[in-house]
């Protein structure tokens, strides 16, 4: 009710990262994904990890929100350790694989905390317009990607509301049996569906129409830091290309 969980939704303050242009952020994100998939080089992963740490510090979002996602994947780190041991890979290889997951998750978190939903839709739409020859419906894809990104925070909000509503009627959800908890989870998913339907109705009443052209008020101009970060990513791409002998 007061401090809704900011886990996974936009954190409303101003910082250097909030002021970046969303299209450049998206391009950097895609270059990062390409690098993670294509290479296992230790130096590139080290530079990317340092870059993500710098972005986290510059975004002024409290570190505990980042730590939450990092901590929730602890079983995956253990599973990876067993898989690496099974295949006989060394400790440094294990570190590279773990850092791939951490870089991806934390980078995604930084983007979600610092970019408002209207900006993400705008940037994905403009990016897909470059691929106009494929005849994709850019706006529809953009809004469904945005919906996927925002589903989890909405689910957590509804779950929090249901816990509060049960609590005030003298019920402690922690005492429920497993069967009731599963039924309750089903109800929470149903309520999330109702809540997102209501949000769509509200947007429709405010003249939201997927087929009509919209402007975006919030887009920031391309600035010094945008160009700096873009150059950093392109330099990493160049390093990868020289390593593979493509250049």
């Amino acid at each position: 009710m007061y401090s809704r969980n900011y886990y996974g939704s936009f954190y409303p303050i101003t910082s250097k990262i909030h002021k970046l242009n969303p299209i450049v952020k998206l391009i950097n994100f895609i270059i990062m994904i390409l690098l993670i998939i294509l290479t296992n080089d230790k130096e590139i992963h080290l530079y990317l990890s340092m870059f993500v740490m710098i972005m986290i510090l510059l975004s002024y979002v409290p570190i505990k929100y980042y730590f939450n996602t990092f901590y929730s994947l602890r079983y995956i780190y253990l599973l990876l350790a067993f898989i690496c041991a099974y295949f006989g890979l060394g400790f440094s290889d294990y570190l590279v694989y773990v850092s791939k997951i951490i870089i991806f998750i934390l980078y995604l978190n930084v983007i979600v905390f610092t970019t408002s939903p209207s900006e993400t839709i705008y940037s994905i739409e403009k990016f897909l317009n470059l691929f106009n020859f494929l005849n994709l419906k850019a706006v529809k894809i953009a809004s469904s990607i945005n919906g996927l990104l925002r589903y989890h925070p909405l689910y957590m909000m509804v779950k929090n509301d249901v816990m509060l509503a049960s609590s005030v009627r003298g019920i402690n959800i922690g005492l429920f049996s497993v069967k009731t908890k599963i039924r309750l989870n089903k109800k929470i998913r149903e309520l999330t569906r109702i809540r997102s339907k209501e949000m769509n109705e509200c947007a429709e009443l405010r003249l939201y129409d997927i087929n009509k052209h919209r402007t975006n008020f919030r887009t920031n101009k391309v600035g010094f830091y945008d160009i700096l970060f873009l150059i950093f990513h392109i330099v990493l791409l160049y390093m990868y290309a020289t390593l593979e002998g493509l250049l």
């Binding site: 408002s116 509200c202 939201y208 052209h213 402007t215």
Partner: peptide, 25 residues
């Protein structure tokens, strides 16, 4: 709809209608 918001800040919430009508910045 009093607790349902379409924008993440008050300013985004207010300008949502004008954005849909394609007004300039």
């Amino acid at each position: 709809h009093l607790n349902i918001f379409v924008g993440e800040t008050v300013r985004d919430e207010i300008v949502f209608g004008l954005e849909s009508l394609a007004f300039t910045k």
